[in-house]
Nucleic acid binder design. Sequence first.
DNA 1: AGCACGCCGACT
DNA 2: GTCGGCGTGCTC
Length: 805
Amino acid sequence: MKFASVIVDVAAMQTDREFDYKIPEQWQDAVKPGMRVIVPFGPRKVQGFVTKVKNDSAFERLKNISELLDLTPCLTPELLQLGDWLTEKTLCFKISAFQAMLPAAMKAKYEKIISLIGREKLSEIEILLQPFFEKRNELNWKDIENEIPISVIQKEAAKQNLEIIYEVKQKTKKKMLKYISVNVNKDELRDYYNSLTVQAKKQKEIVHFFLQSEQKSIPMQELLSVLNCSAASVKTLVKKDILIEEEREVYRDPYEDRSFQKTIPLQLNEEQEKAIVPILEAVNDKKHEVFLMYGVTGSGKTEVYLQSIEKVLNEGKEAIVLVPEISLTPQMVNRFKGRFGSLVAVLHSGLSTGEKYDEWRKIERKEVKVVVGARSAIFAPFENLGMIIIDEEHESSYKQEENPRYHARDVAVYRGNYHQCPVILGSATPTLESFARASKNVYKLLTLADRVNARSMPAVEIVDMREELRTGNRTMFSTNLIEKLQDRLAKGEQSVLFLNRRGYSSFVMCRDCGYVIQCAHCDISLTYHRFSQSLKCHYCGHEEHMPTKCPECESEHIRFFGTGTQKVEEEILKVLPEARIIRMDVDTTSRKGAHEKLLTEFGEGRADILLGTQMIAKGLDFPNVTLVGVLTADTMLNLPDFRASEKTFQLLTQVSGRAGRHELPGEVVIQTYTPEHYSVQLASQYDYNLFYEKEMLIRKQHSYPPFYYLSLVTISHPEVTKAASVTEQIVSFLRRELSTQTIILGPVASPIPRIKDRYRYQCMIKYKREKNLHAVLKKVIEHYAQQIAKDDLIIAMDLNPNTLM
DNA sequence: AGCACGCCGACT
DNA sequence: GTCGGCGTGCTC
């Protein structure tokens, strides 16, 4: 008799442990750790992951596993182990860690069905229920839960008139297609063809098709349409065992109808050559090393990636490439598919659940060797990993902002160590954390200081918008920028205008009394949405009408402040009426494929100006772009975020890199209200090193990363006093438990003190070495487990948070 | 989490 | 005397 330890799909403190089950006889040899199963759990059935298979169990009254969902484990031994690590490092539930590693399609869906036990009993049951069973024997719980009191159903269930069935369903199935293939050899087939009479015309055609065809099998649909015959005649042949019918899995391929221009490795320049040598060495020596490839925009990092991967493939190994969601553009995909063709799987949020699942299946079945994808692609179930690349290493989207709050960079280092393979972090503006590690030789620094073909970085001009205002220019464009735009228009060159929306919202304010309209449930101002003429809250979704007069003073001078891309577009057209503008923001790119369409349009020169938000900051490479304008450089600087300067520097550098990437020289105009700020100044001079030094000093002064590690505990509750008092208790507990060198700040109200009618307090922990931190924080959660479950208390823990909001 | 069980007040 | 409210505890 064999037993399985199972982690069940119930994300809760009390169920966050293994439960043992008996493995039924027929699956004794089949069940392996890492497989998904369906198990009875209390009165219901849930999905679970087998973590161990063993010969005994300490528990006595064991139940049987109900169903086995996988033929091969979907979690490799490595991923199972990684699950333990994730659970410990991010303080999440084991089940959440497992689910984060798999495509959403593999998460179970639960259904509750009420089934009538015998038709003859229909008259016995509650009159209320009878009409529902008039035509059918089964009802979906969802359809009746609001129609009939639950007690009625429970009573009938107790009387054995009804049965409640708990079903576990898969979100997405494999896409199956019916295939027809030949079941006999060519000679037999020919004999059979000759034996057919003239009446069997269609059958003859079908057999003839297979006789002259190279392929042994063909999708049913295709066969029918090619020969214009009916399914009946095929069925006849299947019945006679000449043909055979089978279901086969097919992939939903999002790139099916696209062809990729095959590319060959480019000649590397001296710098690239110097950078790739240690990488190839590490591959050769099967050595785990982390490389920080610090390469200015346009220095040809991607070509180094491609040639490194080529080496890895030649060694018979696999590679993972992470790219930020936002720059996972077709341009980027093309570069990888162009070089490695069908060996590449692509994983990003633009794909449907089914498409993502299919790409993942290609990885699982080892049909691809390279994965290009966003954050979660770091969990690709490769078993022979030879390299992990994280492009744009500094991007904050590599950190998941929900449980498990992991950073893909940390997972990459873990996996690199497991597989003893190199990890490459690439960026033009590395995070201070990574650059500091490179300075201490923890990471190996590879530098690409020049752009390929020695093109110079575009000249950057900083425009002081306060000065503009003083000279009477009240528009959002400086005279300088308008002149340059006009110039490009005249020359037929293109411009990119970047509107920094982060940290900036279009709030509504009364010009008479200064009243700002806020959300009723959150302490945050509402955002004006022109499209629906309404005010929305970004945190809870609350929506209300745009008022015609101020709710405070009844003044009619109430209007919205702030700038959306729509507004900017209108403003440009006032000054440059002949300009053709493409606008890119969440509104214009929400439809599938819209993003790509707009970029293609711009690339083909069908517009003069590309106007957009964050999403145009990186990856774009258009030869005709010679001007980049940043409308508001400093909106982020005012956020309560210790990384504000770093993010501003990164963004300005990235955006500047969009201009003059080809023959035509580029120019950049940065508009700002704080031109003297070092992040603006140094970005304009492309001086990363000086920025690094300056920012490091400030981080040191304030005990922020990379000098200290950071953890943030956020406590929320519907009552202010409760939230505050619990935070107070937690802070004093932490002060007792943690070392004296550790800095514990709080309790303080969160930067956003209330979200969805919940008051938020936080406590910040700054530490250098704190061996027991994870255990201590876990103790905190355990201590409040009761209140979390019953009293609507939420304690959120973020180890190494990206933002302090 | 989601469900059953059980204890208490309000009702036929 | 029963119905239904929610607090408590368990799920292999």
